[in-house]
């Protein structure tokens, strides 16, 4: 008579259960896991590339009125409709969007799952007086011809 798995059976008597004791023992997501989006408004230039490549249309940009200081721009990343494909982070020219390894995204209210950030986009400085005079001189010269 043979007992092919007798060794395994004996071993399993003294080994620990394979169940992960998750809520008690916290677990790290593997490296490169695409979790919650983190957005850095300091680096953003409001080019709108992320909005272009987002297939579920989860990213929205709202522009404020233009002042002397600049223009207030607010970016909203709606994780309710995100597919976590990382296209926004890959296409961002300044690396302002990153997908962290935070996987636990639980909410009782939908608005908790919106990552947002705002910054003031500076208007480019007005051309100096010298350049204006030069341009005037150019137009006069072209007019005389």
């Amino acid at each position: 008579m043979k007992f092919p798995y007798a060794g395994n059976a004996l071993k399993d008597f003294f080994s620990k259960p394979s169940t992960e004791r998750y809520p008690k023992v916290k677990k790290e997501a593997p490296k490169g896991y695409r979790g919650k989006i983190s957005y850095d408004p300091e680096k953003c230039i409001a080019c709108g590339m992320c909005i272009r490549v987002c297939s579920p249309g989860a990213i929205t940009m709202t522009k404020g009125e233009k002042n002397d200081e600049g223009q207030l721009i607010e970016m909203k990343f709606n994780l309710n409709s995100c597919t976590f494909c990382q296209m926004c982070a890959d296409f961002c020219p300044r690396g302002a969007i990153k997908l962290t390894t935070q996987y636990s995204m639980i909410a009782t209210d939908k608005n908790e799952l919106v990552v947002s950030g705002s910054f003031i986009k500076k208007i480019p400085p007005k051309p100096t007086v010298k350049t204006v005079q030069q341009s005037k001189a150019k137009t006069e010269a072209s007019g005389s011809k």
Partner: peptide
Amino acid sequence: DVSVAGCPPKPEAIIDGIIK
């Protein structure tokens, strides 16, 4: 009552949601 984000969510996240 509870919404779990992710596409799909990790099993640990689902456990968190169910505990909630």
